[in-house]
């Protein structure tokens, strides 16, 4: 069967769900972060697919921007994790519950 937009969207939805599972189930902050990247990529795939099947380049431009923002976000996020680790000597979310009371 020739893959249409539905196929791409289903792949994207599954990838997104995988990422979400990682965010919810993994306890290592860095792995959670990687799962987030996965979700972001799933969204990118959707945009590129729509761009292709709608004959419109705007989607691709958006993906370009998302990749740029993601790069900045990863840099800042990882710096935060490093700073946090310096202070608490851990990168496990189960140990980072001081926002409680």
């Amino acid at each position: 069967m020739t893959p249409g937009i539905h196929h791409y969207l289903v792949v994207s939805a599954l990838l997104f769900s995988l990422g979400l599972f990682g965010v919810l189930a993994r306890r290592n902050l860095i792995v959670i972060y990687m799962s987030l990247e996965l979700m972001l990529n799933a969204a990118n795939l959707t945009l590129v697919a729509f761009s292709r099947f709608n004959e419109n380049l705007n989607g691709q431009v958006m993906v370009f921007f998302i990749i740029t923002v993601a790069a900045a976000e990863v840099a800042v996020g990882l710096a935060l994790i490093v700073a946090l680790y310096r202070k608490r000597r851990t990168a496990d979310v189960d140990d980072l519950t001081s926002l409680r009371f």
């Binding site: 965010v23 919810l24 979310v93 189960d94 519950t97 926002l99 409680r100 009371f101």
Partner: peptide, 17 residues
């Protein structure tokens, strides 16, 4: 109400989803 809080980010994430 603050007893409801766990402080665990994944609990919040789960509830959010």
């Amino acid at each position: 109400l603050r007893l409801v809080q766990t402080g665990n980010i994944q609990t919040y994430g789960f509830l959010f989803v």
